[in-house]
């Protein structure tokens, strides 16, 4: 189990550093216990109940926690770190209470937000935070690293919005790395906003879209679907579901003009997926005893 805490993050003088650590383990009675649930600085975490993998699921319920931002950080100069470890056969859902808004710091420094998720065999993690909003003038470097063990299951949703309503975009670099047994499954570095990669908003970049989302369903007992276009070329939302190489995993990639248009598509796809009501996108029953 990961025990590295926020202390391992270099603190920047004068800036709040936030950290959250959660460990979920199977309690031996078919449920999930949380022996570690710690928040520090700008971030807090609390237990918020349970959620089944599917509504019809006969399997035991998992735990659910919610991340709470004590301040609407990260500001430039901040360093935030979230570490979540889901042990063998445990099941955890993580949400956040509100959108995370990246704001400019006084000296124009970058802010860092690192998320480290580990999921053991037979375990499942639903990582479903609210959107990340890169406010005008902000500069956030986010990394999300997910290490899965074969037999683990992951549902991950990420949404990034450039600028608050009617505002010009901030700068965002967000790297998502997912490994299975140490082998790379998905590695995506999304760099947008003023001063980031040239062409970021051009015809090969965002082309005017201001909201980007992805939904990843990976691991044992999940269906991989053939590539499936979720919208038409003329729609305001551009979205596709694709099977990833190297394992049972499906990624939904979506671009929208704003958060308002992005959320419904991802929410719908996610709900279909979790409730198993979709004909194409749904987790297949896990192999093994019922």
């Amino acid at each position: 189990m990961t025990t590295t805490g926020v202390a391992s993050c270099p603190r920047t003088a004068g800036r709040v550093t936030g950290g959250v650590r959660v460990a979920a383990v199977a309690d031996g009675r078919g449920g999930t216990a949380l022996p570690l649930l710690a928040g520090e600085g700008a971030l807090a975490v609390r237990r918020t109940g349970t959620r089944a993998w599917t509504q019809q699921s006969p399997r035991p319920k998992g735990a659910a926690v919610t991340l709470v931002g004590a301040m609407s950080a990260p500001l430039g100069g901040d360093r935030m770190r979230v570490e979540i470890a889901v042990g063998a056969d445990a099941r955890l859902t993580v949400r956040s209470a509100a959108a995370t808004v990246a704001l400019p710091g006084r000296g124009g420094e970058s802010a860092w937000y690192d998320v480290l998720l580990t999921v053991a065999g037979g375990a499942e993690l639903l990582w479903l935070p609210e959107p990340l909003i890169a406010a005008a003038g902000s500069d956030l470097r986010m990394t999300t690293r997910v290490d899965l063990v074969r037999g683990a299951r992951l549902v991950l949703r990420e949404e990034a919005v450039l600028g608050r309503y009617g505002e010009s975009p901030g700068r965002l670099a967000s790297r998502l790395t997912v490994t299975v047994d140490g082998r790379p499954l998905l590695d995506q570095d999304f760099r947008v906003g003023p001063g980031s990669a040239p062409g970021w908003d051009g015809p090969a970049g965002l082309a005017g879209h201001r909201a980007f989302g992805q939904l990843l369903v990976a691991g044992s007992g999940t269906a991989t679907l053939g590539p499936q276009l979720l919208t038409r070329a003329s729609d305001v939302v551009q979205a596709v579901a694709t099977p990833l190489a190297g394992g049972a995993a499906t990624l939904v990639t979506a671009l929208a003009p704003d958060a308002r248009h992005l959320r419904p598509l991802l929410a719908r796809t996610l709900e279909e997926l979790l409730d198993g009501s979709a004909t194409d996108i749904r987790p297949v029953p896990a192999a093994g005893p019922p």
Binding site: R175, T177, D187, Q188, D189, F190, R191, A197, A204, G205, L206, A207, H209, F212, Q214, P227, L229, A233, Q238, A239, V240, T242, T253, A254, L255
Partner: peptide, 14 residues
């Protein structure tokens, strides 16, 4: 580097 181009991915599938 792992720089992504999501719109190119969507339109490639299309």
């Amino acid at each position: 580097p792992a720089a992504s181009a999501p719109l190119l991915d969507v339109s490639a599938e299309r």
